[in-house]
Design a protein around this nucleic acid. Sequence first.
DNA 1: GCCGCTCCCCTTGTATTTCGAGGGTAGCGA
DNA 2: TCGCTACCCTCGAAATACAAGGGGAGCGGC
Lengths: 116, 116
Amino acid sequence: MGARVNTLPEVLRGTLDLLVLQSLSWGPAHGYAVARWIQQATDDALAIGEGTLYPALPRLEERGWIAASWGASENNRQAKFYSLTRSGRAQLRVETDQWRRYAAAVFAALSAPALK
Amino acid sequence: MGARVNTLPEVLRGTLDLLVLQSLSWGPAHGYAVARWIQQATDDALAIGEGTLYPALPRLEERGWIAASWGASENNRQAKFYSLTRSGRAQLRVETDQWRRYAAAVFAALSAPALK
DNA sequence: GCCGCTCCCCTTGTATTTCGAGGGTAGCGA
DNA sequence: TCGCTACCCTCGAAATACAAGGGGAGCGGC
């Protein structure tokens, strides 16, 4: 049915963002913990390098989806805690939905017949 | 459990490749038709621009996954027909599997609990 | 015969993002 | 004091999707 047409990277490249937002939906966390969460939540199927994650966090912050503040970690280290903003929560819903529709479309294509 | 750890783009960026390979699994087709197939097979959820698809085809050819040959289209135009090679068929299996595992991991994360 | 549409190919520049490698500080236990 | 782990960051290289642009050739209508 007439859903809007998506371009690829809008959803694809946003997958990291989606995972980060989702990880913060449980409450504030620092970058290092976010990385661990993703790895754990995907049962080690996905690993995010620090060189990938750390640039992503200010990006999300710039867009107003997360907010940062320094604090002490569980291990008594300085750590930058990120928390979801109101608009970040909305964005999480948007991206979750996009992902679901995108994944459904790919799965559909994988079992689609030849072109008519 | 102990699946291999994936990096993001290996799977993500390969999604277009996966769709193209899948579209050719039904037999040779020219680029224009591949684009139409993808749009149709995903129920209009995904649209691939020509500026995206046409550079992708030589890329896949370079990797030995598809082979090109000129011919006449259904509408009696010159068209470049691509067909899956043997190694392309293998690649299709690999990428299908990767996609399934990747998608499963993301879905798992979307319903994962807070970090321990 | 000509117009315009659709089919079909392609290139270029730009923007975005991921990755790997590298570098740095600071607790903490031995 | 050593070394490990937790924690932050930057940089350059590589990929690739996109929008915009350009072109040729059938074909049907006039």
